[in-house]
């Protein structure tokens, strides 16, 4: 990704499905910063789900080193992982994003994607990562996006904003699901994206 000057500026208020789909289809390993062993925390939900869908999950949390999360040993920091990771998923508040991004930018090789969790957004940190060719997603949950693009989340009455006339296999544990359904802007949630944007601008 050397030609990053030609790269289109990502609109972080409303991601095209293709962008998210491309990320979830290509990354294999995900380091989750702020992963919690407490089973009612959103990070635990996402960690467990992504592991079940076949991602190689690495829990990063200095407070739990020496313990495991669903069989995966905690590491204290990104630099302790000791092998390349495709994506960093940051489960921290917006005010704690920048130091994690800076840590990620010191990795060699660089991660391909930095993902900030639902509710977390730091445009300056995003610009920094994008300037070296890293793809950034903010204020989204990878579990929700995977569930949406595969339509598995439809079990909960959620608008997946996708259609398919194909017969898909019934999802079982450990199965990777196809994310290649037709996207429907017509079933949009433009209103929700707009509300999120107004909220960011106010804060």
């Amino acid at each position: 990704m050397s030609n990053n000057k030609k790269r289109q500026v990502m609109n972080h208020d409303a991601y095209p499905d293709n962008y998210i789909r491309g990320i979830l289809n290509s990354v294999k390993s995900i380091a989750m910063v702020g992963a919690s062993p407490v089973n009612v925390r959103p990070s635990y939900f996402a960690f467990k789900y992504l592991a079940q869908r076949g991602y190689d999950m690495i829990p990063v949390n200095p407070g739990h080193v020496g313990k495991e999360l669903l069989g995966k040993p905690f590491v204290a920091s990104l630099s302790d992982i000791g092998r390349p990771v495709d994506m960093i998923d940051i489960f921290r508040n917006s005010s704690h994003i920048m130091p994690v991004v800076e840590e990620a930018l010191a990795l060699d090789p660089l991660p391909k994607v930095i993902w900030m969790q639902l509710g977390a957004r730091d445009d300056a940190a995003a610009a920094k990562a994008e300037s070296v060719g890293i793809k950034v997603v903010m204020n989204r949950c990878p579990k929700i996006e995977y569930g949406r693009l595969s339509s598995e989340i439809s079990w909960m009455g959620v608008n997946s904003r996708t259609l398919s006339s194909k017969r898909a296999p019934a999802p079982t544990q450990g199965m990777r699901l196809s994310l290649n359904r037709m996207s429907v802007g017509g079933g949009d949630t433009a209103a929700s994206d707009r509300a999120a944007k107004n909220k960011t601008e106010q804060s």
Binding site: M156, G157, V158, N159, R161, V184, G186, G187, D188, T189, A190, A191, S192
Partner: peptide
């Protein structure tokens, strides 16, 4: 939800 442009129903 899709017809109304909502996130879920």
């Amino acid at each position: 939800a899709a017809l109304e442009g909502g996130t879920a129903a």
